[in-house]
Design a protein around this nucleic acid. Structure first.
Length: 626
RNA sequence: GCGCCCGUAGCUCAGCGGAUAGAGCAGGGGACUUCUAAUCCCAAGGCCGCAGGUUCGAAUCCUGCCGGGCGCACCA
């Protein structure tokens, strides 16, 4: 069972229905008719929504505008509906269409308006500026849609109509080596991808592509043998993997006899020597045990079942070479077996090979990656392969994918995507390093985050007992690190700045967690849940703004299924929290007259559920109090 | 040398063909006998690296330059 520490199962199941599984399934292939509305669709009674899709305002407006555009253009046109600073929404499409039709943009916009049926959902719809359509949604539409959200455990996000098998390759630490900040991004981003795709109803296979094979293992095993198994196991179980590695390395550099023993160990390992293999397994097991403690601290859903080291593909490697040869793709160059995918050049302008088998007969990581890919599309039947690996390996994956396509191991509908990411920088703008110039230990980083967050919690709240402070410190500290990673475009480098990411305001995890805790506090005081059937009343602009924001969750999540750009979800959650805090400031909940009080409790509950679900998708915990 | 990525407010970042380029932080001014002020409100802050081009319209697309990062055959 996966130790999903961030599972949103609430203390009060009635208030926060579980959202882990696909509890409701919308009718697949449902027609996207523009004429279906919350008001005329018999399946769509207020508060008892059977389908999630029409809780999405953008889609509702888009569906209404599409036929009108089609009528004007004589063919399908995407209405390009988006949020607008001048109204609730705007359509940009008339501008582009005007050129195609050779008519003035404002005329086109006006013609679209004439054809569009918007009266029942919009308070106003008008041509604006050079030819935009500004749409202001009727309050009645907002209250009806948000009432549908109340009854929807999935908050307006329907499960996918086309489930795929998705393999997510992420984390991938190296045996007998410490996890460092470089593994942080892969682990955090990969885990968010897994959580999202799983929630959307895909079959997700986590693969932790452990670095558990290769020449360094000769050295490590030789060192292990010198120490004796018992002593080595003890050292490794302390979690000091780097100490072990460094000691082996130092002997390797200094001692010729040790170097020779190391080389013999490599040969013995590859030759399947039982005693050597046993030592190797000890190394792997101890390392895996250590990695699991890091994953536990990180609140990541990886378990022991997800380890699939490079060695797992060893038996498949000769077949890869043979089959490439049979397909006529293999070229011998400099004694190595290579494939030269077109379009890749090297330093000297020569074609760049993917070296499948080295001149010494050994296999490198290209062979392993090809074998793994083939196993994923073949045996596992995956149609989406994600590789959460740093951007420097971009060319490598482009070549592997190109060769796999040429070999027929990667063909539609299956597709592979390198989910690359940038580096973590220090506040000096350079790659994050420890003072000694080494890579920074991941656990050290996490421990510092937790310690800092715990201190902050104590300083804010001196009456907290030690246990509560520790729990808050952990959720906030780890959440802050993960959120800092996920809240900016993953392709860019980002600066790790303690002050900023642990700050209680700004686009940070603590800010979002605090908004959630505040809402929970309201419900503790209320001593009751929100009444599910209470009508939503939009008495003030802040209530209206919050409602519009709540209705945007589905569109953001839907967009991320494809892009996996988690900073968009982070941005949405921050916007939602900001909008809620403004609402909270101006709209008393518990002190309000009955009707308003019930309505506001519902809005608060929806906000909390959305924050919790959104943060959960990012792998970040919420707290009942802070 | 070839290739890829990145230069947006003092700082960290959104925006990637559409209206007057948005947030947050820091700095300035205001709001606490609080439904948790770990909050909110207000004002200020920009030749979107530079120069051309395409377009009714360019931070966004194309070309060239400048600055920074990364990769380029037997390490993964």
């Amino acid at each position: 069972m996966r130790s999903d520490a961030g599972d949103p199962s609430p203390a009060r199941a009635d208030l926060f229905p579980a959202t882990g599984g696909s509890s409701r399934r919308s009718s697949a292939g449902r027609p996207r008719s523009a004429r279906i509305s919350p008001f005329n669709d018999p399946r769509y009674g207020a508060g008892t929504s059977e389908i999630g899709v029409l809780m999405d305002l953008e889609k509702l407006l888009s569906d209404r505008l599409a036929p009108a555009f089609a009528a004007v253009a004589g063919g399908p046109v995407d209405p390009l509906v988006r949020r607008s600073p001048r109204a609730d929404f705007q359509s940009d499409a008339p501008l582009a269409l005007a050129r195609r039709l050779g008519r003035p943009p404002r005329d086109v916009a006006a013609a679209v308006l004439e054809h569009a049926v918007l009266d029942d959902v919009c308070e106003s719809a008008e041509v604006s500026g050079p030819g935009f359509l500004n749409l202001t949604v009727a309050d009645r539409t907002l209250t009806d849609l948000v009432a549908g959200l109340v009854g929807d455990a999935r908050l307006g996000v329907p499960p996918t109509a086309a489930p795929q098998t998705v393999v997510v390759d992420y984390s991938a630490p190296n045996v007998a080596k410490e996890m460092h900040v470089g593994h942080l991004r892969s682990t955090v981003i990969g885990d968010a991808a897994v959580r999202l795709l799983d929630w959307l109803g895909h079959r997700v296979v986590r693969v932790n592509h452990l670095g558990d094979w290769g020449t360094p293992f000769g050295m490590l095993i030789a060192h292990l043998a010198d120490l004796g198994e018992a002593e080595a196991a003890h050292e490794l179980s302390m979690g000091d993997l780097d100490g072990f590695y460094r000691a082996a390395r130092a002997k390797f550099d200094a001692d010729e006899a040790f170097r020779e023993r190391s080389r013999q160990r490599v040969v013995a390992l590859q030759g399947g020597d039982e005693r050597t293999l046993r030592l190797w397994r000890l190394l792997v097991e101890q390392s895996e045990r250590y990695f699991l403690t890091v994953y536990d601290l990180l609140d990541v859903t990886l378990t022991e079942d997800d380890f699939r080291g490079e060695s797992a593909y060893n038996d498949l490697l000769p077949g890869i070479v043979d089959d490439l040869d049979r397909l006529g793709l293999l070229v011998s160059s400099g004694g190595a077996d290579c494939v030269f995918p077109p379009g890749f050049g090297g330093r000297d302008g020569e074609p760049l090979p993917l070296i499948v088998r080295k001149s010494d007969g050994g296999y490198g990581y290209p062979a392993t990656d090809l074998a793994a890919l083939r196993q994923r599309t073949g045996e596992l039947g995956a149609t989406r392969l994600l590789y959460v690996v740093g951007l420097p390996q971009r060319q490598h994956f482009a070549m592997v994918f190109a060769v796999a396509r040429a070999a027929g191991w990667l063909c539609p509908p299956a597709e592979a995507e390198h989910l690359g990411f940038g580096s973590i920088l220090g506040t000096d703008g350079r790659m994050l390093r420890s003072r000694a110039g080494e890579s920074v230990k991941l656990v050290g980083l996490l421990e510092e985050a937790v310690a800092r967050a715990t201190d902050l919690a104590r300083a804010r709240n001196p009456e907290l007992d030690a246990e509560a402070a520790a729990e808050i410190g952990r959720a906030v500290g780890v959440g802050a690190v993960k959120y800092a990673d996920l809240s900016t475009d993953r392709r860019k480098d980002y600066v790790l700045d303690w002050e900023r990411m642990l700050s209680l305001d700004g686009n940070t995890a603590p800010y979002l967690q605090y908004a959630y805790a505040r809402i929970r506090s309201v419900f503790r005081r209320a001593g009751t849940d929100a009444r599910r059937d209470a009508p939503i009343v939009l008495a003030q602009p802040a209530e209206r703004a919050l409602t519009v924001e709540l209705l945007g969750f589905g569109a953001v999540v839907a967009e991320m299924e494809r892009s996996l750009d988690f900073h968009q979800l982070a941005g949405y959650l921050h916007r939602l929290a900001t909008t809620f805090n403004a609402f909270y400031e101006r709209c008393p909940v518990l002190r309000a007259p009955d009707e308003l009080r019930e309505s506001r409790l519902l809005l608060a509950e929806l906000t909390a559920r959305t924050l919790r679900q959104g943060l959960h998708l990012l792998g970040i915990r919420t707290l009942e109090r802070m």
